[in-house]
Design a binder for these strands. Structure first.
Length: 932
RNA sequence: GCUCGGGUGGCGGAAUUGGUAGACGCCCAGGACUUAAAAUCCUGUGAACAGAAAUGUUCGUACGGGUUCGAUUCCCGUCCCGAGCACCA
């Protein structure tokens, strides 16, 4: 009987769907395990062979855990809001929902073809109102919460209001935007608008004016992780900085916890490091410098002196401050610009404003700046130093102002050199004539009370002194900014907010979901308002709704919670479901989400945890990053100005152009010439210069994309080889975490293995005849093959090392084929072992062997050590007439080999003779293990 | 520039974390079965040298040093590749 994979796979996929084999329920009698894939954005291009890599790995792990007796939650869904569908809608007028649903259906078909064991009853789609109801709900909770730094937790804003009424805000230690201090009395007399504005500064979801990434081409603002090198990640359009009022999430309040809790997670070091860098904690001090504006630019005589706060990690270098710098966007510019410098400053500010973010980055090393006209007083030396304005200081970090120590900071140094400012060295023996000395080492000089101490001693001493003098305090600063949460787009979650007399007001929770209205066109309005401004009659009792929508990460931040209880109408997740499933045990997905989704999700989860809605502080216990599968492109070489193509090894003799050729008409780099002629009309009469009668194509590893004609569709592989072969092959290519090019060459080897395995069940290795398993007792040799395999496969799966377990299967099957073994007690356990990898063929064999239930309910076989350990004998070994230690040797080894081994290792033996050694293990010629 | 990974045959990649380097697969070569091809199976396959042969010897994990009885693995330096961050004071 032949291995007819197409028929087998169709049959079992149907069986699994009809019997809901993979549907799970909360079951307190079994231990839970939660395996999650990052859900895909359903793009129009469909899945290529790279996408399922992580899904296959997680599916193997899921099926393995089920066999081990766990109740495994393994769901799948779609991150369905997003830009491409909206862009497509703008071009064609087709509603994004329509395209999105089409793409989802296509994805579903492709996923089903690969035989995943998802519980599809739990599917979620972020664009589904029943789903985004809970995204909006979480937003409302954030709107109605503030972050208490004393308890290090989010708390209801009502409680804050009560405190304001009782004692004002002086004692409130909150993570908040700038607010004035007020008393209880003042609070009670504030207008509604004023109260709203003040509370806004405390909310975790708040509206605030900041410098944001504005992308004119996309017509929307973007979060920091959506911008790379000054270009939008989606589309690659230039991004500029613009001051705008936007909804934001106070992620920065959680920076410390997000950083500290990384230690408890089983994530790769690389990924943790990325998050650490992104959060960017630095310890230092905030310090006050008095400033003097000799002639304010508006001519007023008042307010000439200000206390300017700066942040520094190098308080020890305060004696070397020779100037101060403020960011062009900072409020200090207004206060410190003098009348005589007014024109120059304004000119500079305008120049800076004109630059796009990309230009600013590109010109990182060109130093620009302007003198404000004002001075600051160094609190330690009482010296007057000039205050400059320069774009190298960022408004968004620290206080937007710095003390410049050119001798020990390379940026300050470059600035000082350019504008001829003084440089005072502070460390003994350092040479600052050519570059600054940035290292935190050496002995302090020219530094008053710090002179003579090492830098490491001086930093805390300086901070202590600052605190003692009351001019500043110890301070921890984070690089992580609050997340910009509004997008000027249509295809996203609407905000459950309406404006009552200009005051943003939350919609009642029982009015959720607030559904997206129908609109005629998806473009922004002519006066630049978001597309939702086109909606007619979209308001709450006459008050207009917020017009922007939520960003992509909103819907993906808590989807793992929704899977636990996807049809619950009264809660995001019921307490019961949350207490059972708790958190994601294994999360599989790409690194590209390191500083986006994986930060936001952790933030979102911690927020819900603070309010008591979820029981775990961290959402994803263990995380595996699957690598990318790149494409392998093929090229043909056209001789210039002809329609003649030359084979790759002869191309140097001609002047040629390299042309991408569809990899579907190339096999093992040999071009199918007839297919090529039909591929494009202009090649119909093409001629070829061959080598050895063949046309050999060139190749290169590139990103898998339509334009390079190197996309491999998993459907094609499934049709030609079967889903089981695809699954095995993707695992066999190399470690899951590694990026690697897709290369179809090796796939035959894996397919051959499955056929060989199949044949073992039909006629004892002959591969002919009917299904035939022998009930004879297995030999020791056969048992050894089996148990070696169980041991290997189990440890490999636990270590996510699937490529080596596939190899182990091949070895075992080769060995069994060689001895023509068809024993039931050997082969059926192997069917169970292999079923996570190649479920269809295993289901078929399992049922042919007479089993009524799906193999998914079988039990992973146990490993017995006695069948695999090499029997050994101990030999006493003597030196100088005394027994020094025992050699543990395999039985198979002859005495002469032992003597030879010891002789060859005479050096070793001499060394060992002087040491208390119990035994050493020897193989011919080498000692392989010494037991002390 | 800073941070984190990584460099092993013709290729993808193994090596129980200090113990016979190159598992497994691809490619290639030879053979068996076939009228023939396909399919299938078997054998060989890091390099050099010696030998009719079994086999043996030497060199080999980017490069140069070190620790160790023993290093792909640990340490120091150099070179190269990949990823992330990028004026974060």
């Amino acid at each position: 009987m032949d291995y007819n994979f197409n028929e087998i796979e169709k049959k079992w996929q149907k069986y699994w769907a009809e019997n809901k084999t993979f549907s799970v329920k909360t079951d307190p009698s079994k231990p839970k395990y939660y395996v999650l894939d990052m859900f895909p954005y359903p793009s129009g291009a469909g899945l290529h062979v790279g996408h399922p890599l992580g899904y296959i790995a997680s599916d193997i792990y899921t099926r393995y855990k089920r066999l081990m007796g766990y109740n495994v939650l393994h769901p799948m869904g779609y991150d369905a809001f997003g830009l491409p569908a909206e862009q497509y809608a703008i071009q064609t007028g087709q509603h994004p929902r329509v395209t999105t649903m089409e793409n989802i259906n296509r994805y579903r078909q492709q996923l089903d073809r690969i035989g995943f064991s998802f519980d599809w009853d739990r599917e979620v789609k972020t664009c589904d109102p029943e789903y985004y109801k809970w995204t909006q709900w979480a937003f409302l909770k954030m709107f109605k919460s503030w972050y208490n730094n004393d308890t290090n937790s989010a708390e209801p804003i009502n409680e804050l209001v009560t405190r304001f009424e009782e004692e004002g805000n002086a004692k409130v230690n909150a993570a908040c935007s700038d607010v004035e201090t007020f008393t209880a009395e003042q609070w009670k007399n504030f207008s509604e608008k004023k109260k709203s504005d003040i509370l806004m500064a405390y909310r975790i979801a708040y509206q605030g004016e900041t410098s944001v990434n504005w992308c004119p081409q996309l017509g929307t603002v973007l979060a920091n992780d959506e911008v790379k090198e000054g270009l939008s990640v989606r589309g690659g359009f230039p991004v500029e900085q613009k001051k705008m009022k936007q909804w934001q999430l106070r992620v920065s309040a959680y920076a410390g916890r997000l950083l500290d809790d990384l230690d408890s997670l089983q994530w790769s070091d690389a990924l943790k490091e990325m998050q650490r860098n992104w959060i960017g904690r630095s310890y230092g001090a905030q310090m006050v410098f008095k400033t003097i504006n000799p002639e304010p630019k508006d001519g007023s005589k008042f307010d000439r002196n200000y206390d300017m706060e700066i942040f520094t990690t190098r308080a020890d270098t305060v004696f070397g401050v020779t100037f101060m710098v403020i960011a062009p966007e900072s409020d200090w510019v207004e206060k410190l610009t003098t009348l005589s410098q007014k024109d120059e400053v304004e000119k500079y500010i305008n120049e800076v404003k004109k630059k796009t973010e990309r230009e600013r980055i590109a010109e990182t090393h060109t130093v620009t700046g302007v003198f404000s006209g004002s001075y600051a007083i160094n609190p330690f030396t009482e010296e007057r130093v000039p205050v400059w304005i320069s774009e190298y200081v960022l408004a968004g970090y620290g206080t937007g102002a710095i003390m410049a120590v050119p001798a020990h900071d390379s940026r300050d140094y470059a600035f000082a050199k350019k504008f001829n400012l003084r440089i005072i060295p502070l460390i003994e023996g350092c040479d600052v004539s050519k570059e600054s000395f940035d290292a935190k080492e050496g002995k302090m000089i020219n530094s008053g009370f710090l002179t003579g101490y090492s830098v490491k001693e001086a930093i805390p001493m300086a901070i202590e002194e600052v605190e003692k003098r009351g001019i500043g305090h110890r301070m921890v600063n984070y690089r992580l900014r609050d997340a910009i949460f509004s997008r000027q787009r249509y295809w996203g979650e609407p905000f459950p907010i309406y404006y009552k007399d200009g005051i943003p007001t939350p919609l009642d929770e029982d009015k959720l979901p607030l559904e997206l209205p129908q609109i005629a066109t998806f473009k922004p309005t002519q006066d630049g308002e978001p597309p939702l401004a086109h909606a007619t009659d979209w308001n709450y009792e006459g008050y207009p709704y917020e017009k922007s929508t939520m960003p992509g990460f909103a819907g993906s931040s808590a989807y793992y919670l929704r899977y636990m209880d996807p049809h619950n109408n009264s809660a995001l997740v019921s307490r019961e479901a949350d207490n059972y499933w708790k958190d994601v045990d294994l999360y599989v997905g790409g690194t590209e989400h390191a500083t986006g989704h994986l930060i936001y999700s952790r933030f979102w989860n911690k927020f819900l945890y603070d309010l008591g809605y979820v029981c775990e502080n961290e959402p994803f216990k263990k995380l595996v990053n699957q690598g990318m599968i790149q494409g392998r492109s093929n090229f043909v070489y056209r001789v210039k100005n002809t329609n003649t193509f030359v084979s790759v090894n002869l191309k140097d003799k001609y002047e040629t152009t390299e042309i991408h050729v569809d990899i579907n008409i190339v096999r093992n780099d040999r071009l199918d010439i007839e297919a090529f002629k039909k591929w494009r009309p202009e090649y119909e009469n093409a001629e070829f210069i061959l080598e050895n009668g063949e046309y050999i194509c060139g190749w290169a590893v590139e990103k898998m994309s339509k334009s390079m004609f190197n996309v491999v569709n998993p459907d094609n592989i499934c049709n030609d080889y079967g889903a089981d072969t695809l699954r095995l092959y993707e695992m066999f290519l190399g470690p899951v975490e590694m990026s690697k090019p897709w290369d179809t060459k090796g796939i035959d080897g894996v397919h051959r293995f499955l056929r060989k395995f199949w044949r073992l069940f039909f006629g004892g290795g002959e591969g002919t005849g009917e299904f035939n398993l022998s009930d004879d007792e297995p030999t020791a040799e056969e048992l050894k093959i089996l148990h070696k395999l169980i041991n290997k496969v189990e440890t490999d799966i636990e270590n996510f090392s699937f490529n080596t377990s596939v190899s182990a299967f091949m070895v075992a099957v080769n060995e069994l084929s060689a001895i023509k073994s068809n024993k039931r007690k050997i082969l059926l356990p192997i069917v169970i072992l292999l079923s996570p990898f190649a479920p269809h063929i295993c289901e078929e064999l399992w049922s042919l062997a007479g089993n009524k239930e799906s193999i998914s309910f079988a039990t992973f076989p146990m490993y017995h050590e006695e069948y695999t350990r090499e029997d050994s004998v101990e030999y006493p070994v003597s030196f100088n007439g005394k027994t020094r230690f025992k050699l543990s040797l395999p039985k198979s080894m002859g005495k002469s080999d032992i003597e030879k081994a010891v002789l060859q290792e005479e050096q070793t033996a001499k060394y060992l003779a002087g040491n208390p050694v119990k035994k050493i293990i020897v193989v011919p010629g080498r000692i392989i293990n010494i037991v002390f």
